[in-house]
């Protein structure tokens, strides 16, 4: 017999789906800001493998000469990004759901098994709760990174009024560097995340939209019925 099984709480889904467009806007407006001073690259010494960003990228995206507009957008959506993130963390702690999310001691060894399995190696998946070990680590890391984006952002935004914070993060220039690479990491996460969601299929994606999946009834569910 089939039953509905709750996968994601309503609150979690709202926090997630609010964050998605807001983070997109933060990255987009951040690009408008970054354009006016774009020193970062992958390389060593005189050798540059990749400059963030090449001229063809600016030509294709037309993000040039929009610094003032970018700053205004960034300092508006930063409020929503921060409050949504803080509300999510508060909810996750208060509801106790953090227990299903935070990495456990065994998560790090298990995550390796998950990655091997996902890469097609014949490694069995360890038993898991709501999230597997790799998800526990990744989803927790992304929350911590969100907090770091807020802190490095504040350190760049008010380096005189919050000079202690700027100093803690290694100074003004390092804070901007950290802020940038956190952003690049989101884009890396996004690529893997989308790939995994596509692989997992429609039912998994649907559960993040409506909160439920259809599952085979287990004896426990039957005894709790009614």
């Amino acid at each position: 017999m089939k039953v509905l099984e709750e996968k994601h709480k309503l609150a979690t889904r709202w926090f997630h789906w609010i964050n998605f467009p807001i983070l997109t806007l933060m990255i987009a407006s951040g690009m408008l800001i970054y354009w006016s001073y774009d020193p970062y690259r992958i390389g060593l010494g005189d050798i540059t493998l990749f400059h963030f960003f090449p001229d063809w990228f600016y030509d294709a995206t037309h993000i040039d000469h929009k610094l003032a507009y970018g700053m205004a957008l960034h300092f508006l959506f930063a409020w929503i990004f921060s409050f949504n993130g803080l509300a999510y963390v508060t909810y996750t702690v208060v509801s106790g759901e953090w227990r299903e999310l935070a990495p456990e001691k065994k998560s790090f060894a298990e995550a390796l098994q998950v990655v091997k399995h996902d890469m097609g190696l014949k490694v069995p998946l360890p038993p898991q709760g709501r999230y597997n070990a790799a998800q526990r680590i990744t989803y927790s890391a992304i929350v911590v990174m969100g907090g770091l984006s807020l802190l490095t952002g504040l350190a760049i935004y008010k380096p005189a009024q919050l000079s202690w914070l700027t100093a803690l993060l290694g100074g003004y220039e390092w804070a901007r560097w950290e802020h940038f690479w956190l952003t690049m990491s989101y884009l890396g996460f996004f690529g893997i995340h989308i790939g995994q969601v596509i692989r997992a299929g429609w039912a998994n994606f649907r559960s993040m939209i409506c909160g439920y999946d259809v599952a085979d009834a287990t004896p426990e569910v039957k005894t709790h019925a009614g």
Binding site: K2, V3, L4, R206, I209, C210, Y212, D213, V214
Partner: peptide
């Protein structure tokens, strides 16, 4: 049925 129920919830969401 569970299938109808989840379809209804998905539409609504």
């Amino acid at each position: 049925t569970p299938e109808q129920e989840i379809a209804r919830r998905t539409r609504r969401s």
